[in-house]
Nucleic acid binder design. Structure first.
Length: 554
DNA sequence: AGTGACTGCCC
DNA sequence: ATTCTGC
DNA sequence: GCAGAATGGGCAGTCACT
């Protein structure tokens, strides 16, 4: 109904990755062009449209500037490096506000005031920036320049790093045009907030390489395809690309291999490798035991204790090195030298390689009992050595993803569990298997849940054994049962809202969360207990905001 | 050297 | 982590 | 049901300031 506002917005049918691109072969791509795509993506809620918008841009990058595809991809995903490399920006809202304040000549007080209404530092900065008069046009920001600056920000540490970082951000801000400033800032916040993230960007890449294959002369492969063939190709390619990112969650590696070897050869070059963490398989909440039987009708399943600790994916590399990764693929190797020292007691010396999935739990050696999460969280995280360990820990292993050179992710859990149990043995106070039971009856599950709570666990994990029981990284294919989820079993508190905080992003203009208190009759005071910000429908939020606006005390 | 603000990462 | 929402 | 974006408490580590 409306004319396309940018080349990238035109449909696949009409889009030409070279003729419709805003830049020419061999040029550095301006960040402005990407920010225009982001604007278009933000302008729709339809994921198919978002995918098409991004894929058209990626097609131009493939056709004109494949050497910049990695950086473009990183910026679309709002990341700068693989998680396991531990590269952090070290920039939060406070530093950003300060930079915006200095770059636009607005006082912090004024900015904070307006931020309450607008709910987004990026949008706020854009408004302030548009009011400034620029004497001469700043040099355009390039994608590679922005990306390099992000890495530079991450590398800047130590004394006076705050000032250096602030100056670099300000320098970028003053070069911004149109909505660039908004996305630079949101990028620094680690929150693009345009309804675009990893999954959609990966789908966009798949669509792009089908239509405009890397290294070729074909600009629009759909022209040579029969009806339905394009959709089929895209579906197949989507699967291959996503699998590649699952097995090697390193954008640079996957994209380099994709450009070099093409989509068909990609799986060969992106395989699960000890030393590179994969995303964890997760659980989704069940609200009752009956739910399990609906889901696992005629399917074997098992129930395991859900330990209250920290996830640990442990790798044995061919050179004998052991590495430990967190739930979010952070490298926690340096945090647990004690586990690394003791783990070899749990397997035979002939072991070459493995990846196992465990929970690290705080442990009282004296009482031989597990301790609460709170205790574990007090453990040192850096420069831990055997002398300065104050919080003792123990492992509970529950899955095996890789064993002696062979990936097990496509094996059923029944088989993986068998390999885990055959390859490891329990070591008192150091290494245990997660307590489990292949229960069949609701009563048995109820009983086991009770036992888990009494044993200082959070509840149960429920896992299929021999059907649809592969290890699927990043998917919530397991089921978790905590007593809080169950009707009548959760602890509840009657609290009174005594304060509210303005919402951000899609909650801008509303109260986004509330401060709750408990009345103490002795002191005749309301004592604050906690904030709460989930469980509200959009309608609830609107109503609460209207209501509380009428009852403001200050 | 001590302290508080800020950030990132666990859940 | 929990929860809601558009597709 | 997926993907994304709101939101929570609480800890250790880092850096600026005194």
């Amino acid at each position: 109904k409306s004319k396309p506002s940018s080349p990238e917005e035109t449909s696949n049918l009409n889009f030409h990755p070279v003729n419709n691109a805003s830049w020419k072969k061999g040029q550095k791509i301006q960040y402005l062009y990407l920010s225009r795509v982001f604007d278009a993506v933000a302008g729709t809620t339809k994921r198919l449209t978002k995918t098409r918008l991004v894929s058209n841009f990626l097609r131009s990058v493939i056709a004109l500037s494949p050497e910049q595809l990695v950086e473009v991809f990183y910026l679309c995903c709002n990341k700068i490096a693989p998680q396991y490399e531990g590269i952090e920006l070290g920039i939060g809202d406070t530093i950003l506000l300060k930079a915006v304040s200095e770059a636009t000549g607005t006082t912090m007080k004024k900015l904070k005031e307006e931020l309450g209404r607008i709910g987004d530092i990026g949008t706020l900065a854009q408004q302030k920036r548009n009011k400034q008069r620029t004497i001469f046009p700043p040099p355009p920001l390039k994608i590679s320049g922005v990306f390099k600056n992000l890495l530079k920000l991450a590398k800047t540490t130590g004394h006076k790093s705050g000032t250096v970082k602030g100056d670099l951000i300000k320098k970028m801000i003053v070069s911004c045009r149109e909505s660039e400033i908004k996305y630079i800032i949101r990028c620094l916040q680690g929150n693009l907030r345009i309804g675009l993230a990893a999954q959609t960007v990966q789908s966009s890449l798949a669509q792009a390489v089908v239509l405009t294959p890397p290294g070729g002369k074909v600009m629009d492969a759909s022209k040579h395809m029969g009806p339905g063939e394009l959709e089929e190709e895209i579906k197949k390619t989507d699967k291959i690309i996503k699998q590649a990112f699952i097995e090697v969650p390193n954008f640079e590696h996957v994209i380099t291999m994709l450009l070099k070897h093409g989509i068909k050869e990609l799986p060969k070059h992106c395989q699960l490798t000890p030393g590179i963490p994969i995303k964890a398989m997760l659980g989704k909440p069940a609200s009752g035991i009956s739910e399990l039987f609906e889901k696992f009708l005629n399917v074997l399943f098992t129930i395991e204790f859900k330990y209250d600790g920290e996830r640990a994916q442990i790798h044995l590399l061919p050179d004998g090195t052991i590495k430990i990764f967190s739930r979010n693929s952070e490298d926690n190797t340096g945090k647990y030298p004690d586990l690394i020292a003791s783990l070899p007691e749990a397997y035979a010396s002939g072991m070459e390689t493995f990846i196992i999935d465990c929970e690290v739990v705080a442990w009282s050696a004296k009482d031989k009992k597990i301790l609460p999460f709170q205790t574990l969280s007090q453990r040192k995280r850096k420069d831990v050595s055997s002398e300065n360990i104050d919080i003792n820990v123990v492992l509970f292993a529950f899955d095996c993803i890789y064993m002696n050179g062979k990936s097990l992710i496509n094996e059923q859990f029944m088989e993986r569990r068998k390999i885990l149990r055959e390859s490891f043995k329990e070591v008192e106070g150091k290494f245990f298997f997660a307590k489990g039971k292949d229960a069949k009856e609701p009563e048995e599950i109820e009983e086991f849940l009770k036992l888990s709570i009494e044993s200082s666990c959070e509840g149960l994990m429920v896992k299929a054994l021999d059907k649809d029981a592969q290890y699927v990284p990043d998917k919530r294919n397991w089921i978790k049962i905590k007593k809080d989820y169950l009707e009548g079993m959760s602890d509840s508190l009657d609290l009174v809202p005594i304060g509210a905080f303005r919402g951000k992003g899609k909650r801008a203009g509303l109260y986004g969360c509330f401060l709750l208190a408990c009345y103490d009759p002795e002191s005749e005071e309301y004592q604050s207990i906690t904030k709460i910000g989930t469980g509200f429908s959009e309608d609830d939020l609107k109503k609460h905001t209207e209501f509380f606006k009428k009852h403001l005390l200050e």
